[in-house]
Protein backbone atom coordinates (compact mmCIF):
# COMPACT_ATOMS: atom_id res chain seq x y z
CA UNK A 1 0.00 0.00 0.00
CA UNK A 2 3.00 2.29 -0.06
CA UNK A 3 2.56 3.50 -3.62
CA UNK A 4 -1.15 4.02 -3.32
CA UNK A 5 -2.66 7.32 -4.09
CA UNK A 6 -6.20 7.88 -5.27
CA UNK A 7 -5.17 9.69 -8.45
CA UNK A 8 -2.98 6.94 -9.76
CA UNK A 9 -5.63 4.38 -8.86
CA UNK A 10 -8.22 6.37 -10.77
CA UNK A 11 -5.94 6.81 -13.76
CA UNK A 12 -5.16 3.12 -13.86
CA UNK A 13 -8.84 2.37 -13.67
CA UNK A 14 -9.73 4.64 -16.56
CA UNK A 15 -6.92 3.31 -18.69
CA UNK A 16 -8.21 -0.21 -18.20
CA UNK A 17 -11.79 0.87 -18.84
CA UNK A 18 -10.90 2.67 -22.06
CA UNK A 19 -8.80 -0.25 -23.20
CA UNK A 20 -11.65 -2.69 -22.60
CA UNK A 21 -14.04 -0.40 -24.43
CA UNK A 22 -11.78 0.00 -27.45
CA UNK A 23 -11.20 -3.72 -27.63
CA UNK A 24 -14.63 -5.09 -27.01
CA UNK A 25 -17.26 -2.54 -27.94
CA UNK A 26 -19.86 -4.12 -30.17
CA UNK A 27 -18.93 -4.54 -33.84
CA UNK A 28 -16.24 -1.84 -34.03
CA UNK A 29 -14.14 -3.21 -31.15
CA UNK A 30 -10.58 -4.01 -32.22
CA UNK A 31 -10.89 -7.49 -30.86
CA UNK A 32 -13.81 -8.30 -33.15
CA UNK A 33 -12.16 -6.70 -36.14
CA UNK A 34 -8.93 -8.61 -35.60
CA UNK A 35 -10.85 -11.78 -35.01
CA UNK A 36 -12.67 -11.29 -38.29
CA UNK A 37 -9.52 -10.64 -40.30
CA UNK A 38 -7.25 -13.26 -38.85
CA UNK A 39 -9.88 -15.66 -37.67
CA UNK A 40 -11.50 -15.99 -41.07
CA UNK A 41 -9.75 -19.04 -42.30
CA UNK A 42 -9.33 -20.37 -45.76
CA UNK A 43 -12.69 -22.13 -45.66
CA UNK A 44 -14.49 -18.83 -45.16
CA UNK A 45 -12.60 -17.20 -48.02
CA UNK A 46 -13.26 -20.10 -50.35
CA UNK A 47 -16.93 -20.14 -49.50
CA UNK A 48 -17.26 -16.41 -49.97
CA UNK A 49 -15.58 -16.62 -53.37
CA UNK A 50 -17.93 -19.40 -54.42
CA UNK A 51 -20.95 -17.47 -53.30
CA UNK A 52 -19.84 -14.29 -55.09
CA UNK A 53 -19.20 -16.19 -58.30
CA UNK A 54 -22.60 -17.81 -58.02
CA UNK A 55 -24.36 -14.46 -57.67
CA UNK A 56 -22.34 -12.94 -60.52
CA UNK A 57 -23.08 -15.80 -62.85
CA UNK A 58 -26.75 -15.77 -61.94
CA UNK A 59 -27.09 -12.15 -62.86
CA UNK A 60 -25.18 -12.81 -66.06
CA UNK A 61 -22.04 -10.89 -65.08
CA UNK A 62 -18.45 -11.91 -65.64
CA UNK A 63 -15.77 -11.61 -63.00
CA UNK A 64 -12.04 -11.52 -63.15
CA UNK A 65 -9.54 -11.71 -60.35
CA UNK A 66 -9.39 -7.96 -59.77
CA UNK A 67 -13.12 -7.39 -59.32
CA UNK A 68 -13.31 -10.38 -57.06
CA UNK A 69 -10.64 -9.09 -54.72
CA UNK A 70 -12.44 -5.76 -54.69
CA UNK A 71 -15.84 -7.13 -53.74
CA UNK A 72 -14.56 -9.54 -51.14
CA UNK A 73 -12.44 -7.18 -49.10
CA UNK A 74 -9.96 -9.84 -48.07
CA UNK A 75 -6.23 -9.51 -48.31
CA UNK A 76 -5.05 -9.93 -51.95
CA UNK A 77 -2.55 -12.72 -51.41
CA UNK A 78 -4.99 -14.75 -49.37
CA UNK A 79 -7.55 -14.59 -52.15
CA UNK A 80 -4.94 -15.62 -54.71
CA UNK A 81 -3.93 -18.56 -52.54
CA UNK A 82 -7.50 -19.61 -52.08
CA UNK A 83 -8.17 -19.44 -55.81
CA UNK A 84 -5.16 -21.56 -56.53
CA UNK A 85 -6.39 -24.17 -54.15
CA UNK A 86 -9.91 -24.01 -55.57
CA UNK A 87 -8.69 -24.61 -59.11
CA UNK A 88 -6.75 -27.62 -57.94
CA UNK A 89 -9.81 -28.97 -56.14
CA UNK A 90 -11.85 -28.46 -59.26
CA UNK A 91 -14.29 -25.96 -57.79
CA UNK A 92 -13.57 -23.23 -60.32
CA UNK A 93 -11.78 -22.79 -63.60
CA UNK A 94 -10.51 -19.94 -65.74
CA UNK A 95 -11.85 -19.04 -69.12
CA UNK A 96 -9.08 -16.68 -70.22
CA UNK A 97 -9.37 -14.02 -67.45
CA UNK A 98 -12.85 -14.91 -66.34
CA UNK A 99 -13.52 -17.07 -63.29
CA UNK A 100 -16.17 -19.75 -63.67
CA UNK A 101 -17.79 -22.28 -61.37
CA UNK A 102 -17.50 -25.96 -62.12
CA UNK A 103 -20.50 -28.18 -61.40
CA UNK A 104 -19.05 -29.18 -58.03
CA UNK A 105 -18.34 -25.54 -57.30
CA UNK A 106 -21.88 -24.54 -58.14
CA UNK A 107 -23.25 -27.27 -55.90
CA UNK A 108 -21.08 -26.10 -53.04
CA UNK A 109 -22.09 -22.47 -53.63
CA UNK A 110 -25.76 -23.43 -53.56
CA UNK A 111 -25.26 -25.07 -50.21
CA UNK A 112 -23.79 -21.87 -48.80
CA UNK A 113 -26.61 -19.81 -50.25
CA UNK A 114 -29.08 -22.25 -48.75
CA UNK A 115 -27.61 -21.92 -45.27
CA UNK A 116 -27.45 -18.13 -45.57
CA UNK A 117 -31.08 -17.78 -46.56
CA UNK A 118 -32.29 -20.35 -44.06
CA UNK A 119 -30.54 -18.44 -41.34
CA UNK A 120 -32.12 -15.18 -42.43
CA UNK A 121 -35.48 -16.90 -42.32
CA UNK A 122 -34.67 -18.13 -38.84
CA UNK A 123 -33.65 -14.67 -37.66
CA UNK A 124 -36.81 -13.19 -39.10
CA UNK A 125 -39.20 -15.78 -37.68
CA UNK A 126 -37.71 -16.88 -34.41
CA UNK A 127 -35.61 -14.08 -32.97
CA UNK A 128 -35.94 -10.42 -32.13
CA UNK A 129 -33.18 -9.07 -34.38
CA UNK A 130 -34.27 -6.20 -36.59
CA UNK A 131 -34.32 -6.64 -40.32
CA UNK A 132 -31.24 -4.50 -40.83
CA UNK A 133 -29.19 -7.10 -38.99
CA UNK A 134 -30.33 -10.29 -40.69
CA UNK A 135 -27.92 -10.16 -43.57
CA UNK A 136 -24.72 -9.58 -41.61
CA UNK A 137 -25.52 -12.24 -39.08
CA UNK A 138 -26.29 -14.74 -41.82
CA UNK A 139 -22.99 -13.84 -43.49
CA UNK A 140 -21.02 -15.24 -40.60
CA UNK A 141 -23.39 -18.08 -39.78
CA UNK A 142 -23.27 -19.55 -43.28
CA UNK A 143 -19.71 -20.72 -42.65
CA UNK A 144 -20.48 -22.23 -39.30
CA UNK A 145 -23.52 -24.46 -39.72
CA UNK A 146 -22.83 -28.01 -40.75
CA UNK A 147 -24.89 -29.80 -43.31
CA UNK A 148 -26.90 -31.69 -40.66
CA UNK A 149 -27.54 -28.60 -38.61
CA UNK A 150 -28.83 -26.82 -41.68
CA UNK A 151 -31.22 -29.69 -42.33
CA UNK A 152 -32.51 -29.62 -38.77
CA UNK A 153 -32.99 -25.90 -38.99
CA UNK A 154 -34.89 -26.28 -42.22
CA UNK A 155 -37.24 -28.83 -40.68
CA UNK A 156 -37.75 -26.66 -37.64
CA UNK A 157 -38.73 -23.75 -39.86
CA UNK A 158 -41.13 -25.90 -41.82
CA UNK A 159 -38.90 -26.31 -44.89
CA UNK A 160 -39.35 -22.75 -46.10
CA UNK A 161 -39.00 -22.01 -49.78
CA UNK A 162 -38.22 -18.32 -49.59
CA UNK A 163 -36.07 -16.16 -47.37
CA UNK A 164 -37.54 -13.03 -45.76
CA UNK A 165 -36.54 -10.90 -48.77
CA UNK A 166 -38.44 -13.23 -51.05
CA UNK A 167 -35.34 -14.89 -52.49
CA UNK A 168 -35.71 -18.62 -53.06
CA UNK A 169 -33.90 -20.96 -50.69
CA UNK A 170 -32.17 -23.70 -52.71
CA UNK A 171 -33.40 -27.13 -51.66
CA UNK A 172 -31.23 -29.90 -50.24
CA UNK A 173 -30.76 -31.23 -53.73
CA UNK A 174 -29.86 -27.84 -55.11
CA UNK A 175 -33.11 -26.94 -56.78
CA UNK A 176 -33.99 -23.26 -56.81
CA UNK A 177 -37.59 -22.15 -57.01
CA UNK A 178 -38.67 -19.40 -59.34
CA UNK A 179 -39.71 -16.09 -57.85
CA UNK A 180 -43.26 -15.70 -58.91
CA UNK A 181 -44.28 -12.37 -60.44
CA UNK A 182 -43.23 -9.42 -62.54
CA UNK A 183 -41.48 -6.16 -61.90
CA UNK A 184 -43.86 -3.61 -60.47
CA UNK A 185 -43.63 -1.17 -63.45
CA UNK A 186 -45.12 -3.87 -65.66
CA UNK A 187 -48.33 -3.92 -63.66
CA UNK A 188 -51.10 -1.89 -65.37
CA UNK A 189 -53.04 0.78 -63.56
CA UNK A 190 -55.75 -0.53 -61.21
CA UNK A 191 -54.48 -4.06 -61.18
CA UNK A 192 -53.72 -5.73 -57.89
CA UNK A 193 -50.72 -7.80 -56.92
CA UNK A 194 -48.87 -9.19 -53.98
CA UNK A 195 -45.23 -8.24 -53.33
CA UNK A 196 -43.16 -11.41 -53.56
CA UNK A 197 -39.61 -10.15 -53.66
CA UNK A 198 -37.60 -7.07 -52.76
CA UNK A 199 -34.25 -6.92 -54.54
CA UNK A 200 -31.51 -5.89 -52.15
CA UNK A 201 -29.00 -4.74 -54.78
CA UNK A 202 -27.94 -2.01 -55.35
CA UNK A 203 -27.93 -0.99 -51.76
CA UNK A 204 -28.93 2.65 -52.36
CA UNK A 205 -32.20 1.61 -53.86
CA UNK A 206 -32.78 -1.12 -51.30
CA UNK A 207 -32.30 1.35 -48.46
CA UNK A 208 -34.85 3.62 -50.06
CA UNK A 209 -37.39 0.83 -50.18
CA UNK A 210 -36.68 -0.37 -46.65
CA UNK A 211 -37.20 3.15 -45.37
CA UNK A 212 -40.78 3.03 -46.68
CA UNK A 213 -43.48 0.88 -45.16
CA UNK A 214 -43.24 -1.64 -47.99
CA UNK A 215 -43.38 -5.27 -46.94
CA UNK A 216 -43.20 -8.63 -48.57
CA UNK A 217 -46.55 -10.31 -48.79
CA UNK A 218 -48.61 -7.16 -48.75
CA UNK A 219 -51.10 -6.32 -51.49
CA UNK A 220 -50.56 -3.38 -53.80
CA UNK A 221 -52.85 -1.57 -56.19
CA UNK A 222 -51.33 0.59 -58.88
CA UNK A 223 -53.00 3.98 -59.27
CA UNK A 224 -50.65 5.69 -61.68
CA UNK A 225 -48.00 4.26 -63.94
CA UNK A 226 -45.97 6.34 -66.36
CA UNK A 227 -42.38 7.00 -67.35
CA UNK A 228 -41.69 9.38 -64.49
CA UNK A 229 -43.32 7.66 -61.57
CA UNK A 230 -45.34 4.80 -60.30
CA UNK A 231 -47.93 5.45 -57.64
CA UNK A 232 -49.47 2.59 -55.73
CA UNK A 233 -51.41 1.87 -52.58
CA UNK A 234 -50.35 -0.72 -50.07
CA UNK A 235 -51.70 -1.28 -46.57
CA UNK A 236 -53.49 2.04 -46.68
CA UNK A 237 -50.46 4.16 -47.57
CA UNK A 238 -49.70 5.73 -50.89
CA UNK A 239 -46.21 5.29 -52.31
CA UNK A 240 -44.62 7.19 -55.18
CA UNK A 241 -41.52 5.57 -56.63
CA UNK A 242 -39.33 6.25 -59.64
CA UNK A 243 -39.61 3.40 -62.17
CA UNK A 244 -36.03 2.24 -61.55
CA UNK A 245 -36.73 1.95 -57.85
CA UNK A 246 -40.07 0.28 -58.41
CA UNK A 247 -38.35 -2.23 -60.69
CA UNK A 248 -36.71 -3.70 -57.62
CA UNK A 249 -40.09 -4.86 -56.39
CA UNK A 250 -41.44 -8.08 -57.78
CA UNK A 251 -45.18 -8.40 -57.68
CA UNK A 252 -47.38 -11.39 -58.41
CA UNK A 253 -50.58 -10.25 -60.09
CA UNK A 254 -53.73 -11.54 -58.46
CA UNK A 255 -56.47 -12.69 -60.77
CA UNK A 256 -59.43 -13.51 -58.62
CA UNK A 257 -61.40 -10.70 -57.11
CA UNK A 258 -59.91 -9.39 -53.91
CA UNK A 259 -61.05 -6.18 -52.43
CA UNK A 260 -58.28 -3.82 -51.55
CA UNK A 261 -59.97 -1.47 -49.19
CA UNK A 262 -59.58 2.24 -49.56
CA UNK A 263 -59.46 4.59 -46.58
CA UNK A 264 -57.39 2.21 -44.55
CA UNK A 265 -55.98 3.78 -41.41
CA UNK A 266 -53.76 2.56 -38.64
CA UNK A 267 -55.06 1.73 -35.20
CA UNK A 268 -52.54 4.18 -33.76
CA UNK A 269 -54.46 7.02 -35.38
CA UNK A 270 -57.74 6.12 -33.71
CA UNK A 271 -59.08 8.73 -31.30
CA UNK A 272 -61.04 8.33 -28.13
CA UNK A 273 -64.78 7.83 -28.77
CA UNK A 274 -64.18 6.66 -32.34
CA UNK A 275 -64.96 3.12 -33.35
CA UNK A 276 -63.50 1.10 -36.18
CA UNK A 277 -63.32 -2.30 -37.79
CA UNK A 278 -60.09 -4.21 -38.19
CA UNK A 279 -59.04 -4.85 -41.78
CA UNK A 280 -55.95 -6.89 -41.02
CA UNK A 281 -52.45 -6.81 -39.62
CA UNK A 282 -49.65 -5.27 -41.62
CA UNK A 283 -47.13 -7.69 -43.04
CA UNK A 284 -44.52 -5.82 -41.10
CA UNK A 285 -45.63 -7.69 -38.02
CA UNK A 286 -44.40 -11.25 -38.20
CA UNK A 287 -43.46 -14.32 -36.25
CA UNK A 288 -44.47 -14.59 -32.64
CA UNK A 289 -45.82 -11.07 -32.24
CA UNK A 290 -48.18 -11.47 -35.18
CA UNK A 291 -49.51 -14.71 -33.77
CA UNK A 292 -50.07 -13.15 -30.36
CA UNK A 293 -52.09 -10.34 -31.90
CA UNK A 294 -54.22 -12.82 -33.80
CA UNK A 295 -54.75 -15.01 -30.75
CA UNK A 296 -55.83 -11.99 -28.74
CA UNK A 297 -58.59 -11.38 -31.25
CA UNK A 298 -57.14 -8.70 -33.52
CA UNK A 299 -58.61 -10.36 -36.57
CA UNK A 300 -60.29 -9.13 -39.69
CA UNK A 301 -63.78 -7.85 -39.02
CA UNK A 302 -63.46 -7.31 -35.28
CA UNK A 303 -64.86 -4.09 -33.82
CA UNK A 304 -62.43 -1.97 -31.90
CA UNK A 305 -62.39 1.22 -29.89
CA UNK A 306 -60.22 2.91 -27.32
CA UNK A 307 -60.96 1.85 -23.78
CA UNK A 308 -58.37 3.81 -21.84
CA UNK A 309 -55.94 6.54 -22.75
CA UNK A 310 -52.56 6.27 -21.08
CA UNK A 311 -51.34 9.14 -18.91
CA UNK A 312 -47.90 8.80 -20.53
CA UNK A 313 -49.18 8.61 -24.10
CA UNK A 314 -48.73 4.89 -24.62
CA UNK A 315 -49.76 2.11 -24.48
CA UNK A 316 -53.47 2.76 -24.92
CA UNK A 317 -55.93 0.08 -23.98
CA UNK A 318 -58.28 -1.06 -26.72
CA UNK A 319 -61.61 -2.70 -26.27
CA UNK A 320 -61.77 -5.78 -28.46
CA UNK A 321 -64.21 -8.64 -28.20
CA UNK A 322 -65.25 -7.63 -24.72
CA UNK A 323 -61.79 -7.31 -23.21
CA UNK A 324 -59.49 -4.42 -22.63
CA UNK A 325 -56.04 -5.04 -24.08
CA UNK A 326 -53.17 -2.57 -24.05
CA UNK A 327 -50.97 -2.21 -27.12
CA UNK A 328 -47.93 -0.05 -27.60
CA UNK A 329 -47.87 2.58 -30.33
CA UNK A 330 -45.61 0.61 -32.66
CA UNK A 331 -47.92 -2.38 -32.40
CA UNK A 332 -51.04 -0.31 -32.94
CA UNK A 333 -49.39 1.16 -36.02
CA UNK A 334 -49.29 -2.32 -37.53
CA UNK A 335 -53.00 -2.92 -37.22
CA UNK A 336 -55.01 -1.75 -40.21
CA UNK A 337 -58.47 -0.41 -39.55
CA UNK A 338 -61.36 1.28 -41.21
CA UNK A 339 -63.27 3.84 -39.21
CA UNK A 340 -67.01 3.31 -38.85
Amino acid sequence: MTTYNPISALILFFVIAVLLFVLFRPIKGWFWILKKNFGSNEKTIIEDILKQLYHFENSGNKVDMKTLVQVLGFNHTRVVDAIKKMTINDLIYFESDILKLTDTGREYALRIVRVHRLWERYLADKTGFSRSEWHDRAESMEHVLTHDEAEQLSVRLGNPKFDPHGDPIPTKTGKVAQVNGVELPLLPVNSIGRITHIEDEPEVIYKQIIAEKIHIGSLVRVVENNATRIVFLSEGEEFKLAPIVAANLTVAPIENEVVVEDNIARLSSLDEHETAKIIGISKESRGESRRRLLDLGFVKGANISIDLMNPLGEPHAYLIKGTSIALRKDQAAKILIKRD
Binding site: E288, R291, R292, L294, D295, L296
Partner: peptide, 8 residues
Protein backbone atom coordinates in the same frame (compact mmCIF):
# COMPACT_ATOMS: atom_id res chain seq x y z
CA UNK B 1 -53.77 -19.87 -22.82
CA UNK B 2 -55.57 -17.88 -25.48
CA UNK B 3 -54.86 -20.41 -28.17
CA UNK B 4 -53.10 -23.68 -28.90
CA UNK B 5 -51.72 -22.62 -32.24
CA UNK B 6 -48.62 -20.73 -31.21
CA UNK B 7 -45.44 -21.94 -29.66
CA UNK B 8 -45.12 -20.38 -26.22
Amino acid sequence: TYSLLSTS
